Deep mutational scan, measured.
Amino acid sequence: MTTFKLIINGKTLKGEITIEAVDAAEAEKIFKQYANDNGIDGEWTYDDATKTDTVTE
């Protein structure tokens, strides 16, 4: 398992969460579901060097 981080730069929700996932694709799926569940819809970027997804509304 690898640690992945999501940075949220939303209009109403800001912060970050960290998860353990098998790979980047699994982490992205989990993060996008989390964002959807919390009403966050924005531009996504991924930095492989830091294993960090960022969503900005």
Rank of each mutant, 00 (worst) to 15 (best):
Y46N: 03
G15P: 09
E20Y: 14
G10I: 13
E28P: 00
K5L: 10
E20R: 13
E43S: 09
E57G: 03
A21P: 01
K51S: 05
E28W: 13
G10N: 03
T52K: 06
T18D: 01
D41K: 11
D53S: 15
K11E: 09
A49K: 10
T56K: 04
A24D: 01
K29A: 10
E28G: 05
I8G: 00
F31E: 00
I30W: 13
K32Q: 09
N38L: 15
K32P: 01
I19W: 07
I8C: 12
T3L: 11
T3Y: 10
V55R: 07
D47M: 09
T56R: 07
K5Y: 12
T56H: 07
D23Y: 03
D47K: 04
A24C: 12
F31Y: 01
M1S: 09
E26G: 03
L13M: 11
A27N: 00
E16H: 09
T12S: 08
D41W: 14
T3P: 02
T12F: 14
K32T: 06
M1P: 05
G10L: 14
G39Q: 04
Y46V: 03
V55M: 08
E20V: 15
G15E: 09
G39W: 06
A49H: 08
T45D: 08
I40F: 07
E16P: 02
T54W: 08
K11D: 05
N36R: 14
K14V: 10
D41T: 11
T18C: 15
T54D: 03
G39S: 06
N9A: 07
I30G: 00
I8S: 00
L13D: 04
N38D: 02
D41E: 13
A27G: 00
A21G: 03
E16V: 13
M1G: 05
G39L: 06
T52R: 10
I7C: 13
N36F: 14
L13T: 06
I40L: 06
I7F: 03
I8V: 06
K29V: 04
L6F: 15
E20K: 10
D37G: 06
E26Y: 07
K29L: 11
I30S: 02
D48T: 10
E57Q: 09
M1D: 02
E20Q: 13
D47S: 08
T50L: 04
Q33I: 07
N9M: 11
N38G: 03
T3F: 12
F4T: 11
K5H: 09
D23M: 02
I19L: 06
D48M: 09
I8T: 01
M1R: 13
F31M: 06
I40W: 07
D23S: 12
Q33C: 14
T50S: 10
G39V: 02
N9Y: 13
I17Q: 01
I17P: 00
T18A: 03
E43I: 13
D23N: 12
T50Q: 06
D23F: 06
T54N: 04
I17R: 00
E16Y: 13
T50V: 04
W44I: 03
G10W: 13
A21V: 10
D53F: 15
L13S: 05
D47F: 09
G10D: 02
I8W: 14
D47G: 05
Q33L: 07
I17C: 15
G10M: 13
E57P: 07
Y46H: 10
T54C: 13
F31T: 00
G10C: 15
T18N: 03
L13K: 07
A25D: 08
E43N: 09
W44R: 01
V55G: 07
A21D: 01
K51W: 08
A24N: 05
E28C: 15
T12W: 13
D37R: 04
D47C: 14
T3K: 13
T45L: 11
T12E: 09
L6N: 00
K11S: 10
K14A: 05
K29R: 13
I7T: 01
W44Y: 03
T54S: 04
G39F: 10
F4M: 01
V22F: 10
I17E: 00
T54Y: 11
T45R: 07
L13C: 15
D47H: 06
I19K: 00
T50M: 07
Y46P: 02
T50G: 07
T45Y: 12
I7R: 02
L6I: 08
Y46S: 04
E57W: 03
T12D: 10
F4C: 14
D53H: 15
A25F: 10
Y34F: 11
T3W: 13
I7N: 01
T45H: 11
K5F: 13
I30K: 06
A27Q: 00
L13G: 08
T56S: 03
L6V: 06
I40N: 01
I30H: 02
I8A: 00
E20H: 11
I30M: 06
I17W: 12
A35D: 05
I40K: 01
K11F: 12
W44A: 02
Y46F: 11
A49L: 12
K5D: 05
K29Y: 05
T50F: 06
N36E: 14
G42Q: 03
T52S: 04
I40P: 00
M1Y: 10
K5G: 00
A21T: 03
E26T: 09
D37V: 06
D48V: 11
G42R: 03
Q33D: 05
K11C: 15
K29T: 05
M1K: 14
A25L: 10
V22I: 12
A25V: 12
E28R: 15
T18L: 10
I30P: 00
I8F: 08
K32W: 08
K32S: 04
N9P: 02
K14Y: 13
T50H: 07
T56C: 10
A25C: 15
E16R: 07
K51D: 03
E28K: 14
T3I: 12
I17A: 00
N36Q: 14
K32C: 14
F4L: 02
V22L: 12
N9G: 02
I30N: 01
G10K: 02
T54V: 08
V22S: 06
I19D: 00
K14H: 08
V55W: 07
L13A: 04
W44S: 02
L6E: 04
L6G: 01
G42E: 06
N38C: 15
G10V: 11
E16G: 04
V55L: 11
T12A: 08
L6W: 11
K5M: 07
D48L: 11
E20C: 15
T2R: 13
T2I: 15
E57D: 06
D37W: 07
T45F: 12
I17D: 00
G10H: 06
D48C: 14
T2D: 03
N9D: 08
E57K: 04
A27D: 00
I40S: 02
E20M: 14
A35G: 01
D53A: 15
A24H: 15
N38F: 14
D48R: 08
V22Y: 13
K51T: 06
Q33P: 00
G42C: 15
F4D: 13
I19P: 00
L6M: 07
K11H: 13
K11T: 10
N9K: 08
A35L: 14
T56P: 05
A35H: 02
T18K: 03
T18M: 08
T50C: 14
L6Q: 01
I19C: 15
Q33E: 07
W44M: 01
I7Q: 02
K51G: 08
K32V: 03
V55E: 05
E26V: 04
F4A: 11
I7W: 04
Y34G: 01
D48N: 08
G39P: 03
K32E: 02
F4K: 08
Y46Q: 01
D53K: 15
Y34D: 01
Y34T: 01
E57N: 05
N38R: 09
T56A: 08
A24I: 12
Y34V: 02
M1C: 15
F4N: 10
K51F: 09
A27I: 05
I7Y: 05
D53R: 15
N38V: 12
L6P: 03
T54K: 10
E57V: 12
K29G: 04
G15T: 14
G15M: 15
N9W: 13
I17F: 12
L6C: 15
T56G: 07
D41M: 12
G42Y: 10
N36M: 14
T45W: 11
E20D: 06
